[in-house]
Simulated assay, not measured.
Amino acid sequence: MSSGEIAEQGTRPYLEETIKEMKARGGKDAEIAAKIETALDQGKLDYYKVSQKIDANGNLAPIEIKKFDIK
């Protein structure tokens, strides 16, 4: 991605930028990034967003799961 460009979560450019940033941090992050990148290149990576809202009374709403298409 070019400087100043914004990628939306759940897109391939967002994932690729995340991998790049993890590699730059080095250490364990870089090791994990390499594994993610390999799985992505092999078409074996599933990318999900999992969220759960909490209402004003502290009650948990149902868990929401969304699978992103990152082809």
Rank of each mutant, 00 (worst) to 15 (best):
residue 48 Y to N: 09
residue 16 E to C: 03
residue 23 K to C: 01
residue 33 A to R: 13
residue 45 L to R: 02
residue 50 V to I: 12
residue 23 K to P: 00
residue 34 A to P: 14
residue 61 A to L: 12
residue 13 P to L: 00
residue 48 Y to S: 09
residue 28 K to Q: 12
residue 57 N to L: 01
residue 26 G to E: 10
residue 13 P to E: 00
residue 36 I to G: 00
residue 49 K to I: 02
residue 62 P to D: 15
residue 51 S to A: 14
residue 43 G to P: 00
residue 30 A to R: 04
residue 23 K to N: 03
residue 50 V to M: 05
residue 47 Y to E: 03
residue 50 V to S: 10
residue 47 Y to Q: 06
residue 55 D to M: 11
residue 36 I to K: 02
residue 25 R to F: 09
residue 51 S to H: 09
residue 42 Q to V: 04
residue 26 G to L: 08
residue 33 A to Y: 11
residue 36 I to E: 02
residue 29 D to S: 12
residue 31 E to I: 03
residue 41 D to I: 01
residue 29 D to L: 10
residue 42 Q to T: 07
residue 17 E to S: 07
residue 35 K to D: 04
residue 16 E to N: 00
residue 59 N to K: 05
residue 21 E to S: 04
residue 33 A to C: 11
residue 55 D to V: 06
residue 23 K to S: 01
residue 12 R to Y: 06
residue 34 A to D: 12
residue 28 K to H: 12
residue 53 K to N: 08
residue 54 I to S: 00
residue 61 A to G: 12
residue 45 L to W: 10
residue 29 D to A: 14
residue 31 E to K: 11
residue 28 K to F: 09
residue 22 M to S: 14
residue 17 E to Y: 00
residue 34 A to W: 15
residue 25 R to C: 13
residue 19 I to M: 12
residue 14 Y to F: 15
residue 38 T to H: 04
residue 57 N to E: 05
residue 34 A to Q: 15
residue 55 D to N: 09
residue 51 S to L: 10
residue 25 R to A: 11
residue 36 I to T: 05
residue 38 T to S: 13
residue 25 R to M: 13
residue 60 L to Q: 06
residue 44 K to M: 14
residue 60 L to T: 05
residue 59 N to L: 14
residue 59 N to C: 14
residue 12 R to S: 02
residue 37 E to D: 06
residue 15 L to P: 15
residue 58 G to C: 15
residue 60 L to P: 11
residue 46 D to P: 02
residue 27 G to C: 12
